[in-house]
C-alpha cells in the first residue's frame, strides 16, 4: 500500500461487510424476514438472500436485514417487515426474490411502499 487512497479504499470495502457492528444505528432501516419453519418452508430463505444481495449491490449500508420467528400468519409466508425511521412499518406478504428486489428499489431507495404487496391489500388472503 503506497497511499492514503488505498487505505481509504480498504476501509470502505470492509465497512460494507461489517457495518452491522457499528454503533450509530439510529438511521438504520430494518428489513425483518419471518424465518420460522413456516416461512422457510414457504421459501423465505431465497427472499432474505435477495434482500441482502440487492442492498449490497446498491451499497445501502444503512439497511439491516434480520430475521424473526413465526408471527402466526403462516398462510401469508414468506413475510417481511420494512421499518424505516419516520415512516410507518409496512408488512409485506407472499414474497418472492423478485418482489424483494423491487421492494428494495421502490420502498427503501425511493421511499414509496408497494401497496399491492402489503398485507391487507390482497383479497386472496
Amino acid at each position: 500500500m503506497k497511499s492514503l487512497e488505498e487505505l481509504k479504499e480498504i476501509r470502505q470495502k470492509t465497512l460494507d461487510k461489517i457495518n452491522m457492528r457499528k454503533e450509530d444505528k439510529e438511521e438504520a432501516v430494518r428489513v425483518v424476514v419471518g424465518m420460522a419453519t413456516c416461512g422457510i418452508a414457504a421459501g423465505a430463505r431465497p427472499v432474505m438472500i435477495a434482500f441482502i444481495e440487492e442492498c449490497a449491490k446498491r451499497g445501502l449500508r444503512h439497511v439491516q436485514v434480520t430475521q424473526t420467528g413465526c408471527i402466526g400468519l403462516c398462510q401469508h409466508e414468506p413475510m417481511a417487515d420494512v421499518i424505516i425511521p419516520g415512516m410507518e412499518k409496512v408488512t409485506y406478504i407472499k414474497l418472492t426474490p423478485e418482489k424483494a428486489r423491487r421492494i428494495v428499489l421502490e420502498h427503501i431507495v425511493n421511499g414509496r411502499p408497494i401497496a399491492e404487496y402489503a398485507i391487507g391489500s390482497q383479497e386472496d388472503a
Partner: peptide, 10 residues
C-alpha cells in the same frame, strides 16, 4: 457471497 447477513462474535 462475500456479504454475511449475520455475524457471530465469540
Amino acid at each position: 457471497m462475500e456479504l454475511f447477513r449475520s455475524h457471530v462474535l465469540v
